[in-house]
Design a protein around this nucleic acid. Structure first.
Lengths: 209, 209
DNA sequence: TATAAATCTCGACTGCATTCGACTTTTGCC
DNA sequence: GGCAAAAGTCGAATGCAGTCGAGATTTATA
């Protein structure tokens, strides 16, 4: 049964997230105080903590909102017949553009998603499960078409591409590459990963060059 | 000329870092307050901020101390005649063990090193330049011996291995892999990266299986 | 509908990083 | 040495995340 209490909680939760979307969008995460957020949501400061344990957790909820949007968009964009590298590029570049649209948002997001605190693990999981689904379907199809090795576990395949994506984003945040270089670096890395870092048997001859 | 002022500053800076090493080591970063740190260093709270802009920056100085130690150790350990994968495993597992000895330390470190704030970039650079030197020498030697492709830029080669290392550490922090699995996952990923993710021409025949 | 238990709401309070500006020390100059 | 400017030092004040417990609302039970 949906009690009155539950309905109210639902509404309050929604109000908090909506306030967060407005305020984080306008002022950024760091500069939005919990007190402000509470005021915007029309509730008391302490009440927020019945819904979220920490400020970071509110941020995750905010992220989920955002990701629902982007994932839908990406799912449409990605052409099932294109080569893996193109499909993966589409997804990761879409992700990159979105994540880094607000630099602070992206930084916080990457930091927390990759290296979560113990108590953050749960909220994190929800965010990246849909993510994995989308990618898995891409890799699986590529395996079936013979574009990717079948003796590598899907999870590991996903890992390789994801790892390179993280690297590129990190390089961008560190100022080692410029925004315009992101796509080409990413593509190059992906291609190298596909080809392998060790010389192929056939090209072994020119190794002593 | 080294003025009296400069000498004193040098000493105070050192006192702060030493206090940090003691306190962070004993109580951890989060639980050590600036006030405590100041007391331990025998100076006023405000004074710390003439030496470091934020608490995080003190942490970098602390890291440098730690890394000087570990890098020296690793440089010794790594056998120049072993295959790349062994050498790289030695370095990254050494790094992993060290970084994660104190889980909180490692988390903070990875988050900041990979996705630094604008003002953090400088302090960050110093930390990982030595790191790159060590790895570059390994990859270069491997290239010369024909273990790694020569048509890939050293920086990119380094990137591939580093990316996978980050992935493994992230997976560990996220609870997706256990401590005992770290080494084997890492090795598998490295090997796959060497071999390539795409099927080799010769194995193309069994792709439709 | 009356009442006790459960749950929710609130803003005053606590603790800590960072800022501020009054005060002290050092330097450069005569 | 004497003195003004420059640089350094300090802890009280500020701002904010997160806690707490008193009071309000809802639910379960009769």
């Amino acid at each position: 049964m949906t009690t009155l209490r539950e309905k109210k909680k639902q509404l309050t939760r929604k109000a908090i997230i909506e306030a967060a979307v407005r305020l984080f969008g306008r002022k950024g995460f760091e500069k939005t105080s919990i007190e402000e957020l509470a005021r915007e949501a029309g509730i008391g400061k302490g009440t927020i903590y019945t819904y979220f344990q920490t400020k970071a957790e509110i941020f995750y909820a905010f992220c989920e909102e955002q990701f629902e949007f982007i994932h839908k968009e990406l799912a449409t964009k990605t052409d099932p017949e294109a080569p893996v590298i193109e499909r993966v590029m589409t997804v990761f570049m879409g992700e990159f553009l979105h994540v880094t649209q607000n630099k602070e948002f992206g930084r916080f997001f990457m930091q927390r998603v990759l290296f979560p605190e113990e108590y953050e693990k749960n909220s994190r999981d929800e965010v990246d499960n849909k993510w994995l689904e989308l990618l898995f379907s891409i890799y699986q199809k590529a395996q079936q078409r013979g574009e990717l090795r079948q003796d590598i576990d899907l999870l590991y395949l996903a890992g390789h591409f994801y790892a390179l994506y993280i690297l590129v984003v990190s390089s961008w945040y560190s100022g080692r590459i410029e925004t315009e270089e992101v796509a080409s670096s990413m593509r190059l890395l992906f291609q190298q990963a596909l080809d392998g870092l060790a010389p192929t048997k056939s090209s072994l001859s020119n190794n002593q060059g």
